[in-house]
Simulated scan of single mutants.
Amino acid sequence: MDKLNLRRELLSARASLTPEQRRANAVKVRETLLDQPWVQMAGLVACYWSIGTEPETHGLVFALWKHGATVILPVLREDNDLDWAVYDGPDTLAPGRFGVMEPVDTRRGVDAIRTAALVIVPALAVDRLSGVRLGRGGGSYDRALARVGPNVPTVALLHDGELIHGVPAERHDQRVRWAISPEGLTSLM
């Protein structure tokens, strides 16, 4: 299946999830992720502020921050690359481009992700064998992930059924090392 049709299929499946299912999924994912020693030890975490039917990250971001991690969230630039700024609590967010909530802190630059000890990214699907993630098609996270060191845990948050075989890949598509869904955490490398 090509990327466009696969995206449509996955977005349709996400739209069928009830708010209650999404909330329950978020709790499972958050608890599983926070139980990992490599998550607990991460001093600087790059994450994202979820929107729509994406796996919910608001509670995860808050929990990481409350447990002492410095959390940086993306700020979408005009060129669709990702700048980064520090999350310092729920009151430090404001709508950015396209209404996505972004930190109001000083921008740290596109290379700030290089210093993260853990990187959590959105994905519509991840290939079970190769770790290739399917995003929304803008390439923002592929550019960001290309800056991450090879030994840094990169984790894609998914709903059940989104860790699949046969995600179409192009040269620029980046892989993740882990995928997590309500079904559990899966190592991909």
Rank of each mutant, 00 (worst) to 15 (best):
A125F: 00
L6P: 08
V148C: 12
R136G: 15
T18L: 11
R128Q: 14
V110W: 01
R22V: 14
M101H: 12
V126S: 04
Q40N: 08
T57S: 09
R114W: 06
W65A: 07
L73E: 01
A125L: 03
R107C: 13
P150I: 02
R136P: 13
A112P: 03
T115C: 11
W38G: 04
E170A: 13
R133T: 01
G52T: 04
P103H: 10
L157H: 02
D127L: 07
T70S: 10
H172T: 15
Q174Y: 05
T186E: 14
G96W: 13
L73P: 14
R7E: 07
W84T: 09
H159M: 02
R22S: 13
I72H: 02
T115V: 12
V148Y: 09
L185G: 07
L10G: 03
D111F: 11
L118D: 00
T106M: 12
A69E: 15
M189Y: 15
T18A: 10
T57Y: 08
S12E: 15
V167T: 03
V132P: 10
D142E: 04
L124C: 04
I164R: 09
L118R: 08
A63G: 02
L129F: 12
D91N: 11
G68V: 03
M41G: 08
F62L: 14
D127Y: 06
N5T: 14
M41T: 13
A123V: 01
A144P: 14
L163H: 05
I72A: 03
L124Y: 06
E162G: 05
A144C: 11
A156D: 07
G68W: 03
L158Y: 06
G149A: 12
A116N: 03
A156R: 05
G184V: 00
L163C: 03
R30V: 06
Q21C: 03
G99H: 05
G43T: 10
P55N: 10
L76N: 06
R175L: 15
